[in-house]
Computed example of a mutant assay.
Amino acid sequence: MQLALVFTNLEGNLPLQMGFLTSLSKLGVGTNNLSGEIPLSIYNISALVILSLTNNDFYGTLPTNIDLLLPNLQYLWLGGNEFSGKIPISITNISGLISLDLPVNNLSGEVPTSIGDLPFLETVNLEWNLLDSNSVGDWDFLASFTNSSNTMSLEGNHNNFVGKIPKVMANLSYQLTKLGIAGNQLSGTIPIGLGNLVNLYSLDMSTNSLSGPIPGDFGNLYNLQYLSLGENKFSGEILSTLSNITTLSDVYLSNNKFEGNISGNLEKSKSLQFLDVSNNDLGGIMNPQFFSIHLSLIYLDSAHNSLSGPLPLEVGRLNHLEVFNVSYNKFSGQFYS
């Protein structure tokens, strides 16, 4: 039995009687105006395979014995609510769990250290919570994902993770396609070895206090499409090895301390559409060839640098360009429209 009431403008609380549907395998009430605590009777529907309560105003804590109550659960989607408290350790006993989606809540404490041992787990989204505040074991859970052969997406953006990026991150499964640790309190350098994650298409480390150069092995991320390192303290030149990543479409490197010239470092990335290198220490001229190659550019922001010389005429060939910001540089000559 399935019950789907998504996008139906429902209001109020979930009725206790819903828990009497003991043969219900799929329950979806996402994107409504529902509120209140989840009735305990819902957690007694042991046949549930999918529980989706996303984008409502539910609150309360998750039951500590969730593994006993919902042993058959495969998809737990609770994002966009006001759930609080800790992620129950017992969740790691739900052996069939495939997707754990808990973003945009008020969950706190440490992530269960053996979460990555779940054999079928493919996606984990914990972003925009209050997880791990100044705890020694902030990153212990990552070690469990080194043995995971199925996990493809791991998102921990905008929490309270602190300290350095652990070296064990370089040993995550090569199956990983999406990794996000943006908006935390991370410092230090990016450990060597992340280039081993060759199937990554999205990597977001923005809005931390990370420093040092972009590691040379980033050039091995030949499937990368989205790279965001903005709002950090990175320095050095933007590596020419990034030029080897022909799939790059979105590159955000703003508000760092990068030096050198951007024009010659992304020559092979012909799919580039969004490039933000604003608020760095870049200098030199903008190579006309850069614009001849990147005809798909939609967004280019290189403001607040020390770029100089004339603006190339080739800018006028960017037919898809919507945002072009080169303010607060040292350009000279005539601007052609």
Results as ranks from 00 to 15, higher is better:
residue 1 M to K: 14
residue 3 L to S: 06
residue 5 L to C: 09
residue 13 N to G: 09
residue 14 L to S: 00
residue 16 L to H: 14
residue 27 L to V: 05
residue 27 L to A: 02
residue 33 N to I: 08
residue 37 E to N: 15
residue 41 S to F: 05
residue 43 Y to S: 01
residue 47 A to K: 14
residue 52 S to L: 04
residue 59 Y to S: 07
residue 63 P to L: 01
residue 63 P to K: 05
residue 67 D to Q: 05
residue 73 L to P: 00
residue 74 Q to P: 03
residue 89 I to A: 15
residue 100 L to Q: 01
residue 104 V to L: 12
residue 106 N to R: 10
residue 108 S to E: 11
residue 109 G to C: 01
residue 112 P to V: 02
residue 114 S to P: 11
residue 120 F to M: 08
residue 122 E to I: 12
residue 124 V to D: 00
residue 125 N to K: 10
residue 129 N to E: 05
residue 131 L to H: 12
residue 135 S to T: 15
residue 137 G to S: 12
residue 141 F to I: 06
residue 143 A to G: 07
residue 164 K to S: 14
residue 164 K to P: 13
residue 166 P to H: 03
residue 168 V to E: 05
residue 173 S to C: 10
residue 175 Q to P: 10
residue 176 L to A: 04
residue 177 T to L: 00
residue 179 L to A: 01
residue 180 G to K: 02
residue 181 I to M: 14
residue 185 Q to T: 13
residue 185 Q to P: 08
residue 187 S to P: 08
residue 187 S to Q: 12
residue 188 G to V: 07
residue 196 N to I: 04
residue 206 S to I: 09
residue 210 L to S: 07
residue 211 S to N: 12
residue 211 S to V: 09
residue 215 P to R: 06
residue 216 G to R: 10
residue 223 N to E: 10
residue 228 S to K: 08
residue 232 N to P: 13
residue 232 N to D: 13
residue 236 G to Y: 06
residue 238 I to E: 02
residue 239 L to R: 09
residue 239 L to M: 04
residue 242 L to D: 03
residue 246 T to W: 08
residue 249 S to Q: 08
residue 249 S to Y: 09
residue 254 S to P: 06
residue 257 K to T: 15
residue 260 G to K: 03
residue 260 G to W: 07
residue 263 S to H: 05
residue 264 G to I: 02
residue 266 L to E: 07
residue 269 S to T: 05
residue 272 L to A: 00
residue 277 V to S: 03
residue 282 L to S: 00
residue 283 G to T: 13
residue 284 G to E: 06
residue 286 M to T: 06
residue 288 P to A: 01
residue 288 P to G: 04
residue 302 S to W: 06
residue 302 S to E: 13
residue 303 A to N: 14
residue 309 G to R: 00
residue 312 P to M: 07
residue 313 L to E: 14
residue 314 E to A: 10
residue 319 N to Q: 10
residue 322 E to A: 09
